[in-house]
Design a protein around this nucleic acid. Structure first.
Ligand code: ZN
Ligand code: ZN
Ligand code: ZN
Ligand code: ZN
Lengths: 130, 130
DNA sequence: GCCATTTTTGACAACCATTTTCGTTTTCGT
DNA sequence: ACGAAAACGAAAATGGTTGTCAAAAATGGC
């Protein structure tokens, strides 16, 4: 694990929510790092290949990454305002997806599931800003 | 509804699976249409804004579209090989997502759910090609 | 039908996230 | 310390998508 990659991983861990490559690049540069954008992309590629970080796509197609507590299969409840995420685990949706696939004769079934909303903190802030 | 937009909608309906803007542009041109790529993008934008077609993002961030039978909320079981899709409806995953959001104090909860696999036809073809 | 206004279209350029290239720097094994 | 291998970063290239703008087509009185 190179120093640069470790720096990217740390920046992502500090963020606790989903961040884009460009976000992380800005974060790192603003705290004085001389890292290049290419290296941020390469680090994120490597981290996601090895399963250390999760990736998902925003509505406009940008890739965003998160350093999750667990590396085992899970989903996310993501705040639309601050992009903080809660990790979700449970058999319900796993079983549901498997059944759906089997019912229609599909093999090698996988699924992508994300839940979005406004977190309690952001909901409160929205109400207070009258 | 302009003729061009209708042509795009028809091309998408004929496809029955998820197709990208560039796919549809190629389809239309190959059948003799003189449509421009910009117009295909505009038509898809309008169709998705009005809820007539569904959009999702591939792993590499490309937007793909589908003309679904229903305009009400549903999900898809998509073949990874031929991109044919089956429309999925049912309360299980809807209730699950709502509960997950509520449990964590999130408001305005929505979700994205897609199931992927290899359809029966494509599975069979894969086995036959020894 | 005919002209003026509005809408739609498409070639081209601009955008922007991401990838590739390639010469330089750092790391690692000996 | 020394040479090979890996990592780095600036700049250029890529590719999907959007913006621009002038031409073409549809619309609506008359
Ligand atoms: Zn996660
Ligand atoms: Zn799952
Ligand atoms: Zn198939
Ligand atoms: Zn649903």
């Amino acid at each position: 694990m190179s120093t640069r990659r470790e720096a990217v991983r740390q920046a992502l861990t500090d963020a606790s929510g989903f961040r884009s490559a460009q976000d992380l690049y800005a974060d790192l540069r603003s705290e004085g790092s001389k890292i290049g954008l290419t290296t941020v992309y390469r680090a994120l590629q490597a981290l996601s290949d090895s399963g250390e970080v999760d990736v998902l796509r925003t509505d406009d197609g940008e890739a965003v990454y998160r350093a999750c507590d667990t590396e085992s299969h899970h989903h996310h409840l993501v705040c639309r305002t601050c992009s903080t995420a809660v990790e979700i685990k449970g058999p319900t949706v796993e079983e549901w997806a498997t059944e759906i696939g089997a019912e229609h004769g599909f093999t090698g079934v996988t699924h992508t599931v994300e839940v979005f909303g406004t977190c309690a903190d952001c909901s409160l802030r929205a109400v207070q800003q009258t």
